[in-house]
Nucleic acid binder design. Structure first.
Lengths: 337, 337
DNA sequence: CTGTTAGCGCATTCAG
DNA sequence: CTGAATGCGCTAACAG
């Protein structure tokens, strides 16, 4: 199995090396007949370009990286799926990198990762999206990057975000139609931008319908199952017990399920619960969880697409927004009381 | 920020290009004083070798890939964590690849992935580990690969597996000590090698204690939450209701929890449930799940280590076994009945 | 539209 | 133990 190079193809097709290069790279200025001849030669020889050589000669690596910091496995997998799909069709490779947004080594980690142009572009996922030192380190390397769901520095780079409001409004509308007037809210960590947006969307949707924020029973959570249990127990033991609880992510909603089970409160007959994320757990609990779907894979694919297309550099930051979708399942029912 | 090359370093240190190369690659035959001079120059100039150039010149890419086929997110993340850790310390990159073990395109997918030595080595995860066409396609590319938890063709390549038996025995011992004598078993898919081993380990551990396989109530499952619910409902409605159920993975154990909740059976007072995997879900259910921990990340790291060390080729297939560990949590209690 | 000439940055011969 | 020459396979200027 000898190595077929671009020279072999050129010889076979009776053209110059450069013409082959042009065909391979879909450049313009090639006559159709010549292009065909080259393609035939490529086919016959089974020629595959060497990425190492292209990378060296062109100064591009055809590799894009994703930075993760210990997010949920489901979220991570969806992100990877989206990026992978985009990379696959474009002949790019996807490399995974882990860094801790909260540690001092962020900058050093990024320097290590960005050494000598191994990456053509970088995609950042929360919470690294909002990690200032990380952004600075990346920018020092003069590499294009796209942030997914940034919560801070909105115009600092290209980004892909979701537009939650409409979907949250749909959800509130659904609960309202079921007769719910007493609402509970399980918040996420204060540091997390998404937590704020979800809360604000919920409160303002209710305000539109005449429910003041002060009337909503709120409990703090940490986006974890355990914190959801505590928040659920808290809310269900208050004087003014809500008939519908919105947990700002599915993990906590699942915790509210557990709290309800402990207190003998039946879902959805005695209590309606909704989540956010449409994560895998939403279909794994019983009854299945009414929630809001985030187009995570789609966002990731869009981010990768930007990088692959060579767009979205610091000179022309592009900001895309993709819509969330209300997903009706079994955890909501008519209000009784 | 100009590019520092090996020539710059050589000039600065007053040595030849080759000597710098030797130092960088930790080769022998370099005088200590010369080595020091070079290292100082490298430090002063902030020299970082170009991976593209090394890849081209040396014919190695310093990249290792992992093949996934839609496994659980938790499992996937642990695998990635393990490999990443090994890669990080060795200066390798980790690229992710997805293929479907069940489709005809496996071979074509692998050809696409293995084009022109973009990868120095490949790690296969289940169920691709046992996909014959995939193995053939990989071997045709003459690339080193390591399989994680293979269920077939044991000596065909290097591999890293677990040794489940001792841990399953510990688990059975625990249940036995609690007084359980009526056991239920939720099996995994027939095609899945791990499902067999877990079942066999369980049955033989019971046999050692005098319980015949025929006395164990078995139900079929598919390693999914939903199938766990069905299996749980099935087992709990039989004439001979078990007091302890072993689900061959955590997802199904969680399904058994749901089934118990529906039937009003209390865990662990009326029923003990155990799982396998020690996945994230094991700590997210209530009560927390007694299960068996698989050293997944460790296995993955070992596989990557083999590849990075240049070992484990088809000429010297290395087979490593790592032990599982019984993890006691809250889902098991004394038998009453 | 097409071909020629140079490198990209490094590792690998092979001499000294 | 060290250094000079050669080439990995390809793309980027330039010429024609």
């Amino acid at each position: 199995m000898k190595k077929i190079t671009i020279v072999d193809v050129a010889k076979r097709a009776g053209v110059s090396m450069k013409s082959v290069s042009r065909v391979v790279n879909d450049e313009t200025n090639v006559r159709a007949t010549l292009r065909d001849r080259v393609n035939i030669a490529i086919e016959e020889l089974g020629y595959k370009p060497s990425f190492a050589a292209r990378a060296l000669a062109a100064g591009r690596s055809f590799v894009i990286g994703v930075l993760f910091d210990n997010p949920s496995p489901h979220y991570t997998m969806k992100i990877q799926d989206g990026i992978y799909a985009a990379c696959k069709s474009a002949g790019y490779q996807l490399v995974i990198e882990h860094v801790s947004a909260n540690r001092d080594e962020v900058a050093a980690d990024i320097d290590r990762i960005l050494i000598n142009g191994r990456l053509d572009g970088l995609i950042l996922t929360p919470p690294i999206t909002d990690c200032e030192p990380a952004l600075c380190a990346i920018e020092a390397h003069n590499i294009r990057y796209v942030r997914i769901s940034p919560g801070a520095f909105p115009a600092r780079s290209s980004s892909v975000s979701t537009n939650d409001e409409a979907a949250v409004d749909d959800m509130v509308n659904h609960l309202w139609d079921l007769g719910h007037r007493k609402f509970g809210l399980v918040n996420g960590p204060a540091m997390h931008a998404a937590a704020h947006w979800r809360r604000n969307g919920f409160l303002s949707a209710l305000a539109k319908r005449g429910i003041e924020p002060a009337e909503v029973q709120e409990a703090a959570g940490e986006f974890t199952f355990q914190s959801g249990i505590l928040a659920g127990l808290d809310l269900l033991k208050r004087d003014k017990v809500p008939t519908a609880i919105f947990a700002t992510n599915d993990d906590m909603a699942s915790g509210v399920f557990a709290a309800s089970a402990q207190l003998g409160v039946h879902i959805p007959n005695q209590l309606s619960v909704t989540g956010f994320d449409d994560s895998w757990i939403a279909e794994s609990v019983w009854p299945s969880l009414t929630t809001i779907h985030q187009p995570i894979a789609e966002m990731a694919a869009a981010a990768a697409g930007m990088l692959i297309a060579g767009r979205g550099g610091s000179s022309d930051p592009i900001m895309i927004h993709q819509a969330c979708r209300f997903v009706l399942r079994q955890s909501t029912g008519p209000a009784n009381g």
